[in-house]
Design a binder for these strands. Structure first.
Ligand SMILES: NC(=O)c1ccc[n+]([C@@H]2O[C@H](COP(=O)([O-])OP(=O)(O)OC[C@H]3O[C@@H](n4cnc5c(N)ncnc54)[C@H](O)[C@@H]3O)[C@@H](O)[C@H]2O)c1
Ligand SMILES: NC(=O)c1ccc[n+]([C@@H]2O[C@H](COP(=O)([O-])OP(=O)(O)OC[C@H]3O[C@@H](n4cnc5c(N)ncnc54)[C@H](O)[C@@H]3O)[C@@H](O)[C@H]2O)c1
Lengths: 214, 214
DNA sequence: TATGTTATGTGAATTTAATAACATGAGATC
DNA sequence: GATCTCATGTTATTAAATTCACATAACATA
């Protein structure tokens, strides 16, 4: 089923989006879907949808389309979401709080197994069914909860040391919300989520493109 | 100064990142920087940095590098950040709250001019110096505060109607945090921020690539 | 004033990704 | 059971983005 080919990261990104779209279709009782409908639903071209899926196998039926439940299962499998992933979130501030309470992660099989902070006034506070832990307990909880992925939600100034802590404790992947480039060893998967870049793309388009057409 | 060329969105994205890196350098008293140092600092190649800047003009001095203050000013100008932008955030939930309190927006010249919700229990609550407004006041405040950009932080189910409301009230750009593709007229600039796609890229890399190398 | 050094700016080459076009095969129809 | 329809899967084409390589110009030095 799985071809061996370098898969563009853009394809993986779209796969994640297709997958959640399929989830919605499935919840709505839709049983079959075409590449055109997926394309329409997520805002890409039908050829793109088929191309993306083709990296991983043949999931459809010619002349018919895709079985929603099956394709959903396949996309989840491809994304590694046929298993549960435990997360550690470091930084129980505003963003950390929002992330902890976000139900969308749970739906996709993510389990927030620990939230950590170094501010004594925050430690011990409850966020939903979670309790904010002191940073000191990080190693122990990573171990006991089998956590492989860390989320950084601390200020820029603390991001690198938190990343170092995560690496030291054997985490394999890091999702970083602090807007800095972090130094980690090559074997660590790291991705940044930047909440303001897209906003500045908007202002660029409003301001610069407007100026250009003067 | 400004060449007329289609600028790749990836270039604008990186420009936003360079710009914030330059801000850090400037705060640290650094006066001159090379494309190599910028590249190092943000995690791209030096050629990429120069190529990106070349879309907009010549900002450096050969043999020397770039003047940090000047280049910062130019990048801000290019991104449209030489002016203040008023934002309306709709959805005063966990994410909306985090966005409202995030100081990083202010630093870059964004001014949150209104936060709106339709939940009576949330309306009137204070978030920092802001007060959550009922959706009914949206048209009036958009007008009086000269708001051109809207931020959607409501659940998926309400996102399209909020987008429609924004379009109807003359907003020109939308930043959408709900993980759905929204339908808006062509003249509206819209970008989605998806907080979980990157997480699923991580699991893909951990799970799929691991499986491939078996 | 000539020379050496250094990092920019840019055109060409390469790589990568997206689009288009079409052959294929599954199912429906007659 | 032959034929027709339709949407997939795939190859070919086009487009886009990135990297490379080097000529260029500013500055420092002698
Ligand atoms: N809030 C937003 O909407 C938003 C938007 C864009 C980017 N970000 C980024 O996300 C990160 C978090 O933002 P926030 O708004 O939640 O900030 P915040 O100040 O509300 O929370 C940061 C938390 O990290 C904790 N912390 C600081 N140093 C620590 C350390 N060494 N170890 C453990 N915990 C530590 C603090 O005690 C605090 O609770 C920042 O890097 C910010 O730039 C946030
Ligand atoms: N919280 C996160 O970390 C996170 C992560 C990823 C994506 N998101 C997305 O961001 C969005 C907001 O998430 P959240 O966690 O803040 O949810 P939330 O439930 O905490 O907040 C949503 C808010 O929107 C308000 N609302 C609902 N319908 C509305 C309407 N028609 N008009 C105005 N307000 C309305 C609700 O009253 C509520 O206050 C969702 O689409 C979610 O999928 C959130």
């Amino acid at each position: 089923m799985l071809k061996t080919l370098r898969v563009p990261e853009a394809t993986v990104t779209r796969l994640s989006i297709y997958s959640r779209f399929l989830e919605r279709l499935d919840r709505n009782g839709v049983t079959t879907v075409s590449s055109g409908e997926i394309a329409e639903g997520v805002g890409v071209s039908p050829a793109q949808v088929r191309k993306d899926l083709a990296y991983f196998g043949e999931f459809g039926t010619r002349g018919v389309g895709y079985n929603v439940k099956d394709l959903l299962k396949y996309t989840l499998k491809i994304l590694g979401l046929d298993q549960e992933w435990s997360l550690a979130i470091v930084g129980a501030g505003n963003l950390g709080f929002a992330l902890c309470t976000y139900r969308g992660f749970n739906v996709r099989g993510f389990h927030i197994a620990g939230v950590f902070d170094n501010d004594p006034t925050r430690i011990g506070k409850r966020i939903g069914h979670l309790e904010v832990q002191p940073l000191e307990r990080f190693p122990e909880i990573v171990q006991s909860e089998n956590i492989r992925i860390g989320v950084i939600a601390v200020p820029i100034s603390a991001a690198q040391e938190v990343a170092d802590l995560m690496v030291k404790n054997g985490l394999e992947a890091i999702l970083n919300f602090a807007p800095v480039a972090l130094n980690v060893p090559d074997h660590i998967e790291i991705r940044n989520v930047d909440l303001s870049v897209k906003l500045e793309i908007l202002t660029f388009n409003l301001a610069f493109r407007a100026a250009q057409s003067l």
